[in-house]
Design a protein around this nucleic acid. Structure first.
Length: 533
DNA sequence: TTTATGATGATATTCACA
DNA sequence: TGTGAATATCATCATAAA
């Protein structure tokens, strides 16, 4: 039948999800009317409750059809219903449901294999959509007249599947986008080179063709972050779920001494940004002059690579020290091997022929956190929490535009707070936080953030553990209580997106990274609640 | 039970060169 | 412009040690 996800969502919103026959009947009606007439032209699918109307606005539809009174469960796109699957095996029933929605049976089966049989139907829909969409999306940020044509023809699907099998997961050639025989290609939002965002401190404004849909303009401002080099198609999906706004890709090496290639999607103004002062050092030896004494001339590094969550082991640093003693200088081929390891693990020369990993305090400094911000945790946990955090100077540069807009302070909804990189950025900008509603599940990170808050802030801190437990009803209640939010900020888990994950780089449908979908769900709940104020 | 350690590639981009 | 080599990457797992 070839129904689009949006069509399914609209139908469910209209009649609920307990009446399968009525649902299918309505879907058929939509189909008979023609996708475009019923739904508008749509080039989306990665996130379920995303609907594009005719014209130039992009509108979200809340995934839960009611006002969430008494809503206590995570419900983003939740139209799975146990009564729906009562009489037959869960897997078969879900496959049948998905096939009835127009998905290919093999894709439905694969989605259940990927996501498990217990997940909501919406998760399976999103998984299949993302999978199929890889070869079926228009790249434009704007709404186009290109019809999605459901999920493409059978031939195309098989072609995509064959290609996927060959590539195993997210692969591709080393050169450019995948081009199919029919001329289409995978959705792709390659980061620019150089990765300098829309502007840099003390540099002239770059010409930026930036379009923000009407509905996404203004309060609440939002700021979303994740790794720039996510698997192909991930940023296109993220962008679609965040009003089609193009990511601002920026490598923090342009603001500090460590690389951190990240994508940021936000609706903040980009004029009149101001960096934190003093500007942080941009080279290793400016940041840590004491290492100059031991730094060999043949180690030509001037900046660190990405500061990650785990450090080099002693065995590695010891073996590099031994290699360093093979000559003065060591043979070129040995130098090459050593530099390769030093780059990968961000090692520094702390003595004669002696390298070591950066200390947690040094990483705090490079990332723009106050000294001892994470002190109190075991060192491995300090590395982990820091590796997962923002580079404060980078984020502060983007958030700096809020200073003039909210002279009396801001009310913040902070999702995936971690150790509070966003809040530290606001604090260092001199922006008062009247209230922060923080959502973070990791107890150690929560403790770090709470201690920092108690020491530096006078505003109100409200904490939640899990984004999934922050229901639309709770969001509405918070909006009423605090008069809305000025800023919704957060970077969702990158575990399944990061290139260094050798085990579960599963994309946005991965176990942790799937939490991304909570961000647009909650953001939209905030916007809807604020619209009712 | 918590923490530290060492081993575990694939993917995608960048760059040099023909 | 096309090709191959070089390079970078918010990680995870099993196991040992504390």
């Amino acid at each position: 039948m070839g129904f689009q996800t949006e069509m399914v969502v609209m139908s469910i919103k209209e009649i609920g999800h307990s009446d399968e026959n009525a649902l299918l009947e309505l879907l058929l009606t939509y189909k008979a009317l023609g996708d475009e007439d019923a739904l508008g032209n749509c080039s989306t699918s990665g996130c379920a409750p995303f609907r594009v109307k005719h014209g130039d606005d992009i509108d979200f539809e809340s995934s839960d059809g009611d006002d969430d009174a008494g809503d206590t469960q995570p419900n983003y796109g939740d139209y799975g219903d146990e009564s729906f699957i009562r009489n037959i095996s869960e897997k078969d029933k879900k496959i049948n449901s998905l096939v009835d929605m127009g998905f290919p049976e093999n894709e439905a089966n694969m989605a259940i294999t990927r996501c498990g049989v217990d997940v909501d139907l919406s998760v399976l829909v999103d998984s299949i959509s993302a999978s199929l969409a890889a070869g079926d999306f228009d790249l434009s940020h704007q709404v186009t007249n290109r019809r999605s044509d459901s999920f493409g023809g059978t031939t195309k699907i098989r072609l995509i599947e064959d290609r996927k099998k060959k590539r195993k997961r997210y692969g591709g050639t080393a050169h450019g986008n995948q081009i199919f025989l029919d001329g289409s290609h995978y959705e792709h939002m390659p980061p620019p080179n150089p990765m300098v965002g829309f502007s840099l401190p003390n540099c002239s404004q770059l010409p930026v063709d930036r379009k923000i849909p009407k509905k996404a303009i203004g309060r609440p401002f939002f700021y979303y972050e994740n790794v720039a080099q996510a698997p192909t198609g991930v940023w296109a999906t993220i962008s679609r779920c965040l009003y089609g706004i193009q990511p601002e890709y920026l490598d923090s090496k342009h603001l500090c001494a460590a690389a951190r290639k990240r994508g940021y999607i936000h609706n903040l103004p980009i004029e009149n940004r101001a960096p934190l002062l003093p500007l942080p050092p941009k080279t290793i030896l400016e940041a840590f002059p004491r290492y100059k004494k031991w730094w060999p001339s043949w180690d030509t590094r001037t900046q660190f690579n990405c500061l990650r969550t785990s450090m080099a082991c002693q065995q590695l640093t010891g073996s590099i020290g031994a290699l360093a003693r093979t000559g003065n200088p060591p043979p070129r081929n040995i130098q090459k091997d050593m530099i390769k390891q030093c780059k990968e693990y961000n090692l520094v020369w702390i003595g004669k022929n002696k390298v070591a990993a950066l200390e947690p305090e040094e990483i705090e400094y490079l990332l723009g956190f106050p000294k001892d911000h994470t002190r109190g945790l075991a060192s491995t946990n300090r590395y982990k929490s820091l590796g997962n955090s923002f580079q404060v100077d980078t984020v502060a540069y983007h958030l700096s535009v809020l200073r003039g807009m909210f002279p009396n302070g801001v009310t913040v909804l902070s999702l995936f707070t971690g150790i509070g990189g966003g809040e530290v950025a606001l604090h260092r900008l001199g922006i008062h936080m009247k209230t922060v509603v923080s959502v973070e599940i990791d107890k150690a990170s929560k403790r770090i953030f709470r201690h920092w808050w108690d020491q530096t802030q006078t505003g109100t801190l409200i904490e939640f553990d899990d984004v999934k437990s922050l229901t639309d009803a709770t969001v509405a209640s918070l909006v009423t209580r605090f008069g809305g939010f000025d800023l919704v900020i957060g970077g969702s888990p990158c575990n399944n997106l990061a290139g260094c994950n050798r085990y579960s780089r599963d994309g946005l449908e991965g176990k942790e990274s799937v939490l991304f979908y909570q961000y647009p769900r909650i953001l939209e709940a905030v916007k809807e609640a604020m619209a009712r104020m």
